[in-house]
Amino acid sequence: MPSVKKFLLVKQQRLTNDVFQMDLQAAAPLVGYLPGRFVMVAIPNGLQQLRRPLAIAAVDEAAGKLSLIYRVVGQGTAQLAALTTGEQLSILGALGNGFATQKLVSGDRVLLVGGGTGLPPLMYLARFLAQKGCSVTTMVGFRTQTQIFGTQVFAAAGKLQLATDDGSAGIQGNVGTLLAAFNATDCQQVFACGPLGLLKAVQQRFAKQTMPVELSLESRMGCGMGACAGCMVSVGGGTLNQHICQEGPIFSAAEVQL
């Protein structure tokens, strides 16, 4: 069941020019904060009415610790980045369906594909699957070296394949380049989160494969609770028939229309 909790901001870290990480502490243990789920964070200034949907980047449920990584894209996220240690945040969570990891067992090979602000949920997923004993390969794309964050998590969880548009780190190219070279044999499941182009590339690359391919969609949201119809997506042949916030944000690549 979703709940609103007060979290104490323990640490605010700048990861790149416009990407920040907040480490937060709740007063009690957290329940249901699974990989791929998200929270709605209230902007504590009284002007922004809408909470911001942010993916769970890391969590220690028993200890009540939560980490959120976000890019400053507008006034709301700029307000979040200006918050300092000791301030309190109202957070609604955990929401959405999360990645389907139930069928994976130790030794299974999985592929994670991410870019931009799509990386935070994959950071949590990589740790989670590595702990399960899965063999985790992660493909990550950035525009340039100075935008890189999170790669140490993926490297620690398994194999990291890095691409930059300008070749300043990893191979020159993008995740499309990495996907083309990927050997999909023996890969049990694919997970992707990132810009629309990246999700489409993943959807196309594995269109003829039989393993489950899960795409995490990003969207502006009003409520995050399946009430306002502000984040609809077409799934399974329907037209704008599912809420990204409620039935998603994770959808099967075989069913979702991007």
Binding site: L50, Q75, R220, G230, C231
Partner: peptide
């Protein structure tokens, strides 16, 4: 989509 935007003190839908 998008169906939702924000202004100070309000929401556009």
């Amino acid at each position: 989509m998008p169906r939702i935007a924000e202004v100070p003190g309000g929401v556009l839908n």
